[in-house]
Design a protein around this nucleic acid. Sequence first.
DNA 1: GGGTACATTGGGAGCGCTCCCATCACCATG
DNA 2: CATGGTGATGGGAGCGCTCCCAATGTACCC
Lengths: 360, 360
Amino acid sequence: MAAARDGRGGGRRPGPTLEQVARRAGVGRGTVSRVVNGSPRVSDRTRAAVEAAVAELGYVPNRVARALAAGSTDAIALVVPEPETRFFAEPYFSGILHGVGDALAETDMQLLLTLVRNERERERFAQYASAHRVDGVLLVSLHAADPLPDLLEECGMPAVLGGRRSADESVPYVDSDNVGGARAAVEHLLARGRATVATVTGSTDMYVAQCRLEGYRSALRGAGREPEERLVAHGDFTEEGGHAAMRVLLERAPGIDAVFCASDVMAAGARIALREAGRRVPDDVALIGFDDSAVARHMDPPLTSVRQPIVETGREMAGMLLELLGKTEPPPGAEGADGTADGDPLHRVLPTELVCRGSV
Amino acid sequence: MAAARDGRGGGRRPGPTLEQVARRAGVGRGTVSRVVNGSPRVSDRTRAAVEAAVAELGYVPNRVARALAAGSTDAIALVVPEPETRFFAEPYFSGILHGVGDALAETDMQLLLTLVRNERERERFAQYASAHRVDGVLLVSLHAADPLPDLLEECGMPAVLGGRRSADESVPYVDSDNVGGARAAVEHLLARGRATVATVTGSTDMYVAQCRLEGYRSALRGAGREPEERLVAHGDFTEEGGHAAMRVLLERAPGIDAVFCASDVMAAGARIALREAGRRVPDDVALIGFDDSAVARHMDPPLTSVRQPIVETGREMAGMLLELLGKTEPPPGAEGADGTADGDPLHRVLPTELVCRGSV
DNA sequence: GGGTACATTGGGAGCGCTCCCATCACCATG
DNA sequence: CATGGTGATGGGAGCGCTCCCAATGTACCC
């Protein structure tokens, strides 16, 4: 009897089991399970006895067994398409992680980090998800064409996106107000009297880039000016891209006196092109970036930039997913019965903020 | 019979099981298990039949069940003490992750990312680990006093550190050659004719900071000079710390004409102090940092810095852990029978490299 | 031809837990 | 005092897999 058990496992001390706790406390397995899981249907006396036994034995429930029996895994995956290095740029990654960590700290959910760098790995993850090896998925930094969200939806895997793929994204998401942020940036430029405001866009297959461009145009129109196509150059969210785009801009419209870049990294590239062309910042050309990353603070002059609430985004995403999974009771005191409609609770857009530094 | 089963799980489609595959292929469970796990003790005919059934049914083994039965989890944790924001600084985090991802891609291990920001969370993780909820642990960015490694060792949880806590670290680790990198940096300064070379150290409770300081001293001694205490100022790996330290240095030794900073971020702080003091870089004062981070590239002038092989470190760490877990067969063709001793295989120090830019 | 050795295979037992149902004790009624 | 309810409790069944042993089949030897 015992022999069969001892033959296994190669020496791992297996820690006390539910059964042992039950025996110790002189109750049944079911009762211990109830106590451990906080069910109300246990008498105080019994609960105390069980809790004592748990403490004495140092019992920690075996997640794996729990997952198997309950059919849930108590884990969510954060999926990062890694070719998309944008994600790793400060402060995006750490911010998201920080927020997700915050939200998860309350629960005993685990975070699985999944890097998806190529087709094969995507395939593997899809399979993994469809086999329900996690309870839910957080997806960030998606391209418009990414099929993963739909794929997940298809197999009934709850997912929350960081950012959207398009204006009418159906999958739950948390996004920043990219349009508003860009508009604010360009309005700021205009308000400071800049006459010819150009923009360097991000990869246009990403909705986020489209939004920032839209914000740029919207600000212009709001000021009664017609956006000019020659003042729009396309980057790809890389420094090199920003550099190249700035050169194009300078050639097309030498009279430029302000540039809104859809990311700080591209602004850094643009800065270099500007320096090469002998333009001073901000005297000759004012510069604004997006992301409020470390790069922005360290540029010379420090870069005015649009800050997104990234930590908040991560927190929000995880919170939303938890809600979707029914793993979270509505925060106490909230969930007002009155009609304070918070908009669509599964499609949130968080406000951005302009951080002014020396580049304007 | 079926009723009991249907009553569960709230609608998740549970995917085919081993049992179903077995039935489909007309074999027993054991045989399917063998095929799936690549055991050699299966006839070719049977294997083919099983593989066909697997393909037809789209069978994916249930990891959770497997973990429970086999007593292993097929997951490792990457533990990040988050107050230590150094870890999140570019490019450290993404590099480690990249490397770890590389190593893990070969296997079907999963990566659990665990943020440990406070005592409570540390406690939780310790418990978690001691309950063997992961097979192994990767630890980065440790302070000298961190008890986690010993704790893990105590409960038999394999662990690999990124960096060491002290010179005689016993737990397996992968570290960069901090001493050598710092020495190379300072030698470079000396070779360029700098006379008074100061240093800004990192938090001295971290071994990495001690090493870089040691490298600084070693280079000085190697050039026949005695290190002076007044030329050593302590930072804490933050920009503010670097700023403050540089001011101290300037006050103590106005004649300084070169500074080696134990991190790029601190160098950025030092740069600001230098600018405030009206010193030009590199004309008046040459500056070298450590980490080769994004900050270095974007400083003005771009910062000469010591690059660590971070991706390699991550890859190495994960590889070592996998080895420790016996999850990896020795790379084909390697593991030569001849005595090419690679040193201690569990204590690796990777070489660093000086990246020259405009700050010297 | 009988026996031994070996390769292959099927399936029982069990991993630690949750779910659920039968049971039990106890109380308030009729 | 019997009856029906109620909350608390014990424990069987089962989650999908691995491990292992016994059973079967096959080849080879004396």
